[in-house]
Simulated assay, not measured.
Amino acid sequence: MMPQTELMKRTGCLTRVGQMALIIAIVVSVALLAGAFYQQSAMARDRSTYVSDNDLVAVNGIEMHLRCTGEGSPTVVFESGAGTPSLNWWEIQEAVSQDVRACVYDRQNIGWSAYTGATPTSELTANTLHTLLTNAGESAPYILVGHSLGGVYVRAYTAQYHEDIVGMVLIDSSHEQQQARMPQAYATWAGAEQPILNLCRLLAPTGVLRILNVGAESTQFTADAPVYDEEIAIFNQSHFCAGVRADLAGITNLNAATGPDSLGELPLVVLTAGAQQADNLEAFPADFSLEMLQQADRMWLELQEELAALSNNSEWIVVEDVTHYIHLDQPQVVISAIRNILTQVTVS
């Protein structure tokens, strides 16, 4: 049997350990509560700074962000790629709005639009955009500009509301069958959840990411860009990473049994990034082979060629030395493509 003095000594040690653990738990809890309060206050300040009430439109009970500038018809409407806010179009919108009206918007879960957690589908996205434009008082005809997954969504919109559309620009657009036709390992990787988003999703509401200024390390804009601070503010929203995660899940729907619908004689410009993924092997998982990435590059070009063939009035341009984000790398190329469509529409 343990001597009573020894038992009391050990019991006292355990009590002190318990007290220390309780103190640490209290300190951590207070810090998290303080961080969460700071995060909520800062989010409210950011929204009042960057979001006008005129840019918020209710769609089926969900508040969505739409920013339109310029005057003239047709109106150019931009659809962003997966997980990216409408702010990425700022330079192109600024240029196009000198000629006609130009509208950018954030899908639900993204940017300044409300977070719902729902995975987007082509039909839902097309219907939501149509309702958004209608509720905002915007009117057809439209030229649709879609980047990446946004290209699938603008084609879905055209299939449902073809009488409203007079032209289209696709920027390194996704294809309705790409998940089924790309190399299996590549398609699985492209559609998989990114673990970093789960960590970010948990930390963001505590204010930790804002305090550490992680957004400044994540922006693709330089500090002298007019939208630099706003993009950091978007990143600092509590739902940012959860929203990106939900939006990226839309990629898993790209396994349609049939390809996209014909666009007939619709004026169409297809812009394809010339940079090859096989030239950037180190950016991919270690088990990815050079041969597989080369196969993926060939398939991507094949899919892009199919998109260009959707219209009998199309132009396919492979833009050399740019990444998937052509509109950020070389915005002037996109501006020229839009103005090309505008010229055709005006002449016709």
Rank of each mutant, 00 (worst) to 15 (best):
L202G: 06
A225D: 11
N54H: 12
H130L: 07
P141S: 07
A225E: 09
A204F: 06
S139A: 12
V77Y: 03
V100R: 09
E63Q: 10
W316G: 02
M20A: 15
A187M: 14
I165R: 13
Q40V: 06
T323Y: 02
S97M: 00
N88Q: 14
F78W: 00
L303C: 11
Q237D: 00
I165S: 10
W316H: 14
V59K: 02
E193H: 10
Y186R: 11
C103N: 03
L33Q: 11
E231D: 13
S348C: 09
T5E: 15
F284R: 03
L22A: 14
L133Y: 03
Y115H: 09
G12M: 13
Q237F: 01
Y228V: 00
Y115L: 06
L7D: 08
W89I: 07
V145E: 06
G35K: 05
V96M: 04
D329Y: 13
S289T: 15
A249T: 12
V100H: 06
Y325A: 08
L263M: 07
E63D: 07
R245E: 11
S139V: 09
A204R: 10
Y142L: 14
D55H: 11
A44H: 02
A309C: 02
Q108F: 04
E217N: 12
S311N: 08
L271F: 04
D172W: 01
P183S: 12
Q194R: 10
H65L: 13
P285K: 00
R201W: 07
T252M: 04
M64R: 05
V270Y: 12
S238M: 02
P85C: 05
E71W: 01
A102R: 00
I251P: 04
T206Y: 10
Y153I: 11
Q39A: 04
H327G: 00
Y38R: 10
D279N: 14
F78N: 03
L56T: 06
R210H: 08
A36I: 03
G150M: 05
N127I: 09
S314A: 15
